[in-house]
């Protein structure tokens, strides 16, 4: 028999896992976008993408802080914080989906990655605003305002690139080929997501999929690439990559963490 204390802590693992998953998604994409800062194609867009980075890192912080509170309640001596969670976990402990760790590539890659993710995040947070968990609901209520803007901005850029020049359209389609196999994982529910959804804390991702598809169709239609895309994604012929949510990542994440965590690893136990 599992003792009551142990059961409580196992029972809560799904919640911290779920929070870490949401936070890791936001942190890693925020980190990727921040690599553009100072190198953007147009000054105004450099500022816009940095804004999105800041929003995502802000979301990650709220979620890590909440996860840290829960972890400290069960093991006060561990002294967990937003920074220990971001900087002292290794590759296999990160629970972000593979899409967000994909390299920036050119502007088309960055835009399309953001558009895929923001569309997903928009419908996810729309649902999580009604979570039975008050903290998650509150974080989502703040985040959805930000994500609404991210979705509009990235969607407008998808249209601009698809409709712009031959070169921009070609680059967008190339980005699509690269990124599409990583979109399946967004809706592929892992255990902590299933538990969270069953308890009304998380969202049933199966219910979001059709909304996501619908939004993509509208934007791709306006970008003038819908028929080409529909030809590319014939049912049954598209193998999707997954594993990030359960800690099986691409080779890219290790390098992100090497950079992200460098200071905390090189100078442990310091205040910054």
């Amino acid at each position: 028999m599992i003792g009551e204390e142990e059961m409580n802590s196992t029972g809560k693992t799904f919640l911290t896992d779920y929070l870490l998953h949401l936070a890791d998604d936001a942190l890693i994409l925020g980190h990727r976008n921040s690599e553009w800062c100072g190198h953007g194609p147009i000054l105004e867009q450099d500022i816009a993408l940095t804004n999105i980075s800041l929003d995502l890192i802000g979301q990650a912080r709220s979620l890590y802080q909440y996860a840290a509170n829960i972890l400290n309640e069960s093991h006060p001596a561990r002294n967990v914080s937003e920074d220990t969670l971001a900087y002292l976990r290794d590759n296999r402990e990160f629970k972000n989906c593979l899409l967000v760790e994909m390299p920036n590539g050119d502007w088309a890659h960055t835009i399309l990655r953001q558009f895929f993710f923001s569309t997903y995040q928009f419908f996810l947070y729309e649902k999580l605003v009604g979570s039975v968990n008050d903290t998650i609901a509150a974080i989502s209520a703040k985040a959805i305002k930000e994500v609404t803007y991210h979705l509009r901005w990235s969607g407008e850029w998808v249209i601009r690139l698809g409709d712009g020049t031959d070169e921009s359209k070609e680059r967008l389609l190339k980005a699509f080929d690269m990124l599409w196999p990583f979109t399946g994982e967004l809706f592929h529910m892992v255990e902590y997501e299933i538990v969270a959804a069953d308890l009304g804390i998380g969202a049933d991702l199966n219910l979001l999929r059709s909304k996501w598809d619908e939004k993509l169709k509208i934007v791709f239609q306006e970008a003038g690439i819908l028929s080409i895309i529909e030809n590319k994604i014939k049912p049954g012929s598209n193998w999707m990559q997954s594993g990030g949510k359960i800690g099986k990542h691409s080779e890219h994440l290790g390098f992100i963490l090497a950079e992200l965590q460098f200071m905390q690893r090189a100078y442990p136990n310091s205040e910054w």
Partner: peptide, 28 residues
């Protein structure tokens, strides 16, 4: 910008990003 991806804490990372973004705004 060279230190944005290596800032030692999330708070410092956000502050540095916001700062570099301000510089872009000043340029504008």
């Amino acid at each position: 910008g060279n230190w944005i991806t290596r800032a030692p804490s999330l708070k410092r990372k956000a502050a540095l990003l916001a700062k570099v973004q301000d510089e872009a705004g000043h340029g504008l």
